[in-house]
């Protein structure tokens, strides 16, 4: 058990180093944007793993509602925390990248707005868990919210896209996906892999810490009674 954690940590440590090297040194400097474009190699993988995290929240929540097993709830909660961490990174790196390129920190386009709303949803998700005194009920509420929140993501995205496209103003162009050089693509893929590994490590650790914490709390309660 402990050994596998160690292997996982070391593996993600090494991979993150490779990713750093590739993103900062190996990948060529982008012509129009310059070095600031390198933030892309952290921004996109963060976004990907945060979505992965929220997907895990939804699936674990579904299993929790079906089986009532508390470990599913623990997994959902841990995944929400780690996912939210990476989404916060997305929301920080995004404006840093946007300011020199677009000239503004923020535009209300579909992708940005959806990410922001998503962030609010999972803040709400974590708050909800702490605001219910009965743990089992709180877990059930959180599961319901976790499922709705995740299904809401594509709907929010679509609604904002339609909202914007039918609106002549505010057209944001020049994403990163407009023809990526093979070297850049390779770097991106390595970064995505490294971030996924990092995410998994953090999730596993968070999950186990939570399990231990719950165990301690339960032992305290059992001893008191």
């Amino acid at each position: 058990m402990k050994r596998s954690y160690l292997i996982l940590s070391i593996l993600s440590y090494i991979c993150m180093f490779i990713a750093l090297y590739m993103a900062l040194l190996y990948a060529p400097t982008e012509k129009s944007m310059g070095d600031v474009q390198r933030i892309f190699y952290f921004h996109v993988p963060s976004a990907w793993v945060s979505f992965l995290g929220f997907g895990i929240v939804a699936v674990a929540s579904l299993f929790f509602l079906r089986t009532g097993k508390s470990t599913w709830d623990t997994l959902a909660c841990s995944a929400a925390e780690v996912g939210l961490l990476f989404l916060t990174l997305v929301l920080i790196t995004g404006p840093l990248w946007a300011k020199p390129v677009w000239g503004v920190y923020w535009t209300w386009d579909a992708r940005l707005t959806t990410s922001f709303i998503l962030w609010l949803i999972y803040i709400g998700y974590l708050m909800l868990r702490n605001y219910v005194s009965d743990r089992q009920r709180g877990a059930r509420f959180a599961a319901v919210f976790g499922i709705i929140g995740f299904i809401d993501v594509p709907i929010v995205y679509m609604s904002i896209r339609w909202w914007r496209t039918l609106h002549p103003a505010a057209v944001v162009g020049g994403g990163a996906d407009s023809g990526l050089a093979p070297v850049m693509l390779a770097t991106l893929l390595v970064c995505v892999a490294a971030f996924t590994l990092l995410f998994s490590t953090l999730l596993v650790f968070r999950y186990n810490t939570r399990l231990l914490k719950e165990k301690v709390e339960e032992l305290i309660i059992i001893n008191q009674s």
Partner: peptide
């Protein structure tokens, strides 16, 4: 859900508004 939480006045808009954005957008539009 929020009626069963400790501070329901805060919880309800916190849960309700982000999730109902698609409906609000479509209605406003």
């Amino acid at each position: 859900i929020s009626a069963n939480t400790k501070s329901r006045e805060v919880m309800l808009p916190l849960l309700l508004f982000p999730v109902s954005i698609p409906i609000i957008l479509a209605a406003v539009k």
